[in-house]
Design a protein around this nucleic acid. Structure first.
Lengths: 96, 96
DNA sequence: TAAATTAGTTTACAGTATAAACCAAAATAA
DNA sequence: TTATTTTGGTTTATACTGTAAACTAATTTA
């Protein structure tokens, strides 16, 4: 009746990150930080977890002499998000 | 951009409980346990948290000489669920 | 009368989330 | 030039949470 909700996605900040990345090709660390309102520390940790699960890719480079971290969602991440949304919808389905 | 998700509702079992109670006038402990697949211990803890927040009411009585715990959602709980669903929808909105 | 079942609660532990502390380089101010 | 601040992060300590296991207590069954 109630499917399991992917614990990696069922967390506010990580869900917000993935939600953002579903809508853009890629996004900078700073951009994600601003959009989500997260602290840099927290964001760094949660991005690492998403990367470990292969839900996102992280590319570190330099831009104007400053480090720049660019993130993008993987196919695995997209699929996980779709599955999560489908499951979640069954919890809240009749009431949206 | 991303509203906060009520942490009390943003948890699988508690969300399942509330989701169930949105659809019935009241439900027994055992019924909720079967529907959610939770262990009795976990269910007991999470019901207590929902009660503390006044999201549900818990009535303990006896039925056929056995204790019987009956739960129902409060107006506060209904409002919280609606708010939660509205917020959550913004995270997953475009992809449902 | 011993064992199993029903219906829970309590609690100890593992896992998670988060902010604070930290790092390093670059830019700016004094 | 040298101190201070800013940028862009990472690491880590702590508090919080979720969960299963252990427990309680009454009842039923063998």
């Amino acid at each position: 009746m109630f499917e399991n909700l992917d614990p990696l996605l069922h967390q506010q900040l990580r869900l917000a990150i993935i939600s953002l990345l579903m809508n853009v090709r890629e996004a900078e660390f700073t951009y994600i930080r601003e959009k989500t309102g997260a602290t840099a520390g927290n964001l760094s940790v949660q991005l690492s977890k998403l990367k470990e699960a292969n839900y996102i890719e992280i590319n570190k480079s330099f831009k104007d002499n400053y480090p720049m971290t660019v993130c993008s969602i993987t196919d695995t991440g997209k699929a996980a998000f779709d599955t999560y949304v489908a499951a979640l919808t069954k919890y809240i389905g009749k009431h949206q």
